[in-house]
Amino acid sequence: MLNSLCQPVEIFKTEHGAVYQCNGRNCFWVEFAGGKTSFKVEDFLLLKQKVEAIDVQSMANSTTRATDIAIVMPLRSERCFVLTLTDVLNFRELLQGAKAMLDLNSLIYECLHAMAV
């Protein structure tokens, strides 16, 4: 449940999940696979790197059951993501989309700030 102090701003949304920014606590909320979890900026970026590092090609090529899922356990979080191949792709799309929007926000912020000075 989102904290009432947080005024979450939607960063990026797909049909599988969404990422919100909380300006009150300087954190991100990741909504995916039926749960919402908050991450500090660094932890959010680490989560993205971990999901990007999953070898989807091996998952697709391998016939062993053990490679049917990938488990991502972010540090400093109680959330554990158990992902199928399609989950990985959907999660990756969500996190990369959110990161692209955050980069865009940085550019806009820089431009607006430069104009204001």
């Binding site: 991100f28 900026v41 990161k99 955050l102 820089e110």
Partner: peptide, 14 residues
């Protein structure tokens, strides 16, 4: 909206 990325670091991911 706050620029949380820039608040964290001045280095780009790349």
């Amino acid at each position: 909206m706050k620029d949380l990325l820039r608040l964290r670091t001045s280095l780009s991911e790349e």
